[in-house]
Each structure stands twice: as C-alpha cells, then as structure tokens.
Nucleic acid binder design. Structure first.
Lengths: 199, 199
DNA sequence: CCTCTTGTGTATCGATCGGTATATAAAGGG
DNA sequence: CCCTTTATATACCGATCGATACACAAGAGG
C-alpha cells in the first residue's frame, strides 16, 4: 500500500503529547528538545512528520479547538441565549477544573505574548480568539431574532463580556484558583445576564 | 562623596525602559540584547547595576505596582464597595486604553507561563496576583462591617470576580480590543454588582 | 601625581535555540 | 535479489541565549 519505511510513532498521539507541552509551557517555552524527549522520537522524525515547530503548533491548535476545547461548540448549540452563557461560563469552570488538563487555556497561555520569533503564531491565536467572540455574537443576534434575548441587549457587548469572563477564569485557573473559586466567578458573572423582562 | 567612576546612565529611567520591554514582549521574550539596545548601555553595566535579568525584572515589577498600575490603590481607597468595584473595572479600561501603555498587563503577560528557566519569576507574579485578590477581599469585608455591602454578599467570591474581570479586560486589550469594547465589558460586569437592598 | 574604587567597552564564555546534512534501516514493486 | 521510497539515528550547523573575564576610563582621597 503505502510505499517506504513505515512511521514508527503515532502522529495523532504525538500531537496530543505536544499539545500538553505547549499548553503547560507556552509556544516559546517549549523547546524542540522538550518535544523530542516527550514524544520519544528523534528530531528529524518530527520535522519530517510536521514540517517545523510552528506548523506543529498550528496542528496542535486545530486539535485543541476540535477535540479538547469542545465545550465551546456545545455552548453554541444551546437552545437559548441564557443557556449559551451558562454553558460557556460553567463549561469553562469544568474545563479548567479538570485535573487531566494542564492549567489555563492553550489559546491564552500558548502564545499571548513573546519575542519577534513567535509573532506569526501570536497572530494566529489572536485571530482564533477574535473568531470565538464573533461566533458568540452571531449566536446572540440569532437569539434576539428568536426572542429569547431582550430587544435592548447588545450582542457584541455581551459576547465581549462572555469572552472576557472566559479569559479571566482561564488566567485565575492558571494562577492556582480552586474549582469552587472558578464557580463563584461564574455564578456572579451570570447574575449580569439580562432577563427576558425589560429592566 | 561617592567614590569610584560615576554611573553614566539613570537607573530609574533604565527601569522604566526595561518595564516597557518586558511589558510588551514578556520576561522570556525579552533578551539581554533587547535590553542593552533599548537602554543604550553595555551588558556588564546592566549586570553591575541590577544583578541579573531576574533581579531587574523584580525591580520592574515593584516599579509597575508602585507607579504604573496605580489605579488599584485608588480603587482600594474608594469610600464604598461599589465605588471600589467601579474604580477597578473602569480604571482597568482606562489603563488598557491608554495609548502610552503597551497592550495588556505586565503582571499577566510578563510571566504567566514559560519554560523552567523562568519558574521563579512566574511564582513571583503569581504571588502578586493572589495578593491583589486578598487586598480586595479585605476591603470588601470592611465594607460589610461598614454597611455599604449587603449582608449576604461574599467578599471572597466578589473579589475573585473582580480580579477575573480585570484579567479578562487585560487579555482582550492585548488581543486588540478597542476602548469602547473594554467599556462595554465593564458596564455589563458592573450590573452584576449587588445593590444595597436585598434580592 | 599616585592609588583606590567603581563603571564602561570589547570580546568571549558554555549552553541552548530551531533546523539539517548525511548515512542507514525498513518497507513495497519489479 | 535489487531499486525506489520513506523514516530513522547520529552528529552537526549558525545563531542566540544569559552571563563574565579582562583591560581601561573616570572620579575621590592622599
């Protein structure tokens, strides 16, 4: 079938292992030696399979969005605006409380800042973060049309607020906050959500 | 008076210049060459004046807390709990909207994550972040005693919420959010603040 | 002037960074 | 068996990392 020597490692498994490293130590904080040590493969194998460090990180981002940070999609599928908000903030609490997950959020910690060498990677994570806000805003606009969000509510402002809460929870979790601390934040955050009746 | 050759640069000015570099590119993202280029001094002069990179960063953190991130102190001096919250969230908006300031928050971006080389620096910024939450919680406890915060309000939870909002605003600002976006977040965040009357 | 003390400039240290050249090993096709 | 193709392992590349050894310059005190 496939010609040539077969690959001696599982690329999907390698991406997950790389994701955990980037997640914990950031893009610049994770060296090629860290990666090859953790993955148990030699350097040229990694380059042959993924291209280079940046390309591997992009693959990791895709995997993170698609299969790890998936409470976002569950939230966007919620039937009402309030359910969307609840699934977002409490989903973030559960996500960042899961001891299986490294602390914080890969999208925030992975490449929020750094030197000029990681500028393109930073741009990509920035883009994905703003994309999330737009997806939430679109869903809230639809909620207004469907009548489960007040007429005077501002979808753009509310989506910015929700995303800010997610970032705040992620940073606090990375700083060592306990699950109950995160839930307290989410509880208070939800009291700001507009009810169906006018003010 | 002082014996020996006089220093040819202003250490206070150098700390401010170093702060802006660390603020913009993070601790690990700022190299010694970046620092010496920006400060216009040679490498041994920097080491003689500040010790090493980590010691310089700690001096920068002190300066940031004391003279740059000072809206925090103004908030803690507020007469009421609600005024505290308002000064915090709107102060953060103004702070992160000021075009004179690099994007984001030095305490968050400077050393939120990284390799093992910056572990001690990360521990220090973590400590300072948790210190802020405790100072706010203490102020809110006093507010309850003084009667301008509802009896059933939880100072610890509210302080965690406020800090999370600050982190969220900082991350969004670093991601390129506009001043009006930040104010929208703050406006909604404040609607979660408990009124004096019971629910 | 000389000495002492401290800061400056050059040139460099070993370690590590991301990335590769080269040779060899393991499969399929003939 | 040989040839092609792909993956592996060793060893290495130039560049940069944080940090210094060394010699010299600039002031104070004698």
């Amino acid at each position: 079938m496939t010609i040539g020597r077969p690959r001696a490692f599982d690329t999907e498994r390698a991406i997950v292992q790389a994701m955990r490293l980037f997640w914990r130590n950031g893009y610049e904080g994770t060296s090629l030696s860290d990666l090859t040590d953790e993955l148990g493969i030699a350097r040229p194998s990694l380059y042959a399979a993924f291209g280079n460090k940046e390309a591997l990180f992009l693959k990791v981002l895709d995997r993170y969005d698609r299969e790890t940070y998936h409470f976002i999609q569950a939230a966007l599928d919620a039937p009402t605006a309030r359910a969307l908000a609840e699934r977002l903030v409490y989903g973030a609490c559960a996500f960042h409380s899961d001891p299986e997950n490294p602390p914080g959020c890969l999208m925030v910690h992975g490449a929020l800042i750094g030197g000029e060498a990681s500028a393109s990677v930073r741009k990509e994570t920035n883009h994905r973060r703003s994309l999330l806000r737009h997806r939430i805003a679109d869903r809230l606009r639809r909620a207004k049309l469907e009548g489960d969000l007040r007429e005077d509510a501002d979808p753009v402002a509310l989506s910015a607020y929700l995303v800010a809460i997610l970032r705040g929870i992620a940073v606090e979790a990375a700083s060592g906050a306990q699950p109950e601390d995160l839930r307290a934040i989410a509880d208070i955050a939800m009291t700001a959500w507009p009810d169906r009746k006018a003010a």
